[in-house]
């Protein structure tokens, strides 16, 4: 392996300062993604700043909702009693991803930073604008079965692989970060980017910024009753989503008073279905309305040679997730 410096600071300010000076440095948390990429030569860091000693592990109820420290493990979040009760969508989505071993190691902050699983990104013998800007997109005219339907560019059609992110998008999470210029808050919808001309940038973090926590709004608006995370994949566990849907509804007297919907496996970022949410508000709980919402959600979708099936699978998954969330299916 390439030689690199390794430090393990105990204070957040030190960690942030340390990375700001390092043009080719990386924060190391659970390592479930970064270490793999180092082994494959996709990332060759000069410096690793191990942040596991930073005091960022707390999961607690706050006046405005829920605070989840960036270093809380995926398992801790998914097994947290209050999260399970009040934010079940998050627990369901996390448990749909990876394996227990990986969820034990992976952190919430790291999961937000997880890089795409596009095979062209992973093979240094093939072109990839995300890995090597300007080298071309291998997937555009390659095997693009796992790739995007929404928001892609001719530079990159990769998707964000995370399940957790899809739930966070539906739950209106806020990402708290800190850097040498001080802390700031980023809405989840603004955290991940679309590829555009710069697919090498997955998110809007500035150089040296560190995720410190993920905050969720109060439980009363957390959509905790009628929820479902439906993940369609090639095997029943330990596979990335062909398509996934996070669905959460408020229902009064069989009328939908609020809807939260987001999709995974279809875009460079977790894909919030705002127009479908707007449509569902005030509508009765029935399959026809779900089908209509799915149709609205799919407007603007564009498929490639090998992922055309997603144009059918995605709306079907939206309908089915809504049926499962509302008890129309079990």
């Amino acid at each position: 392996m390439n030689q690199f410096q390794y430090t393990r600071p105990a204070e957040t300010a030190v960690a942030v300062k340390s990375l700001a000076k390092e043009p080719n440095g990386y924060f190391l948390a659970g390592g479930t993604n970064l270490v793999d990429m180092m082994k494959m030569g996709l990332v060759v860091p000069d410096k690793l700043i191990d942040i596991n000693r930073l005091p960022l592990k707390k999961i607690e109820k706050t006046a405005t909702g829920m605070h989840i420290g960036a270093l809380a493990s995926n398992s801790e979040v998914a097994e947290h009693a209050y999260i399970k009760a009040q934010y079940p969508l998050l627990a369901l989505a996390i448990n749909a991803g990876a394996s227990p071993q990986l969820r034990n190691m992976a952190t919430v902050g790291g999961n937000l930073m997880q890089r795409t699983r596009c095979p062209y990104f992973f093979d240094t013998a093939m072109p990839c604008n995300k890995r090597t800007p300007g080298s071309g997109c291998g997937a555009l005219e390659g095997i693009n079965r796992m790739h995007a339907l929404f928001g892609a560019s001719d530079k990159c059609i990769a998707v964000n692989p995370s399940d957790m992110n899809v739930a966070l998008a539906a739950l209106d999470a806020t990402i708290h970060v800190t850097g040498v210029k001080g802390p700031r808050a980023i809405k989840i919808g603004d955290f991940h980017r679309l590829p555009g001309d710069h697919p090498e940038l997955d998110n809007t973090l500035q150089k040296g910024e560190l995720i410190t926590s993920v905050d969720l709004p109060t439980a009363s608006s957390a959509y905790n009753k009628h929820v479902y995370y439906l993940k369609i994949r090639d095997r029943t566990s330990y596979a990335f989503a062909l398509v996934s849907v996070a669905a959460a509804l408020h229902i009064e007297n069989n009328t939908i008073t609020g809807a939260r919907l987001a999709m995974g496996g279809v875009a460079h970022k977790p894909w919030r279905l705002s127009t479908a949410e707007t449509f569902l508000k005030g509508k009765a709980v029935n399959e026809d309305n779900f089908k209509h919402a799915a149709q609205i959600a799919m407007q603007g979708a564009k498929a490639y040679e090998y992922n055309k099936f997603k144009l059918k699978l995605a709306p079907n998954a939206i309908v089915q997730s809504l049926k499962l969330a509302t008890g129309l299916a079990s």
Binding site: R117, Y120, M126, E141, G142, R235, S237, Y238, A239
Partner: peptide, 30 residues
């Protein structure tokens, strides 16, 4: 029957899923 396929990109003559994450051997849940 259900999960395994080594996928080739004919342009390069290379497999694109030569790993245990993307080549799907059945798991217990299957």
């Amino acid at each position: 029957a259900m999960t395994e396929e080594a996928v080739f990109d004919e342009r390069y003559g290379r497999y694109i899923n030569g790993n245990f994450a993307d080549y799907h051997v059945p798991v217990n849940a299957d």
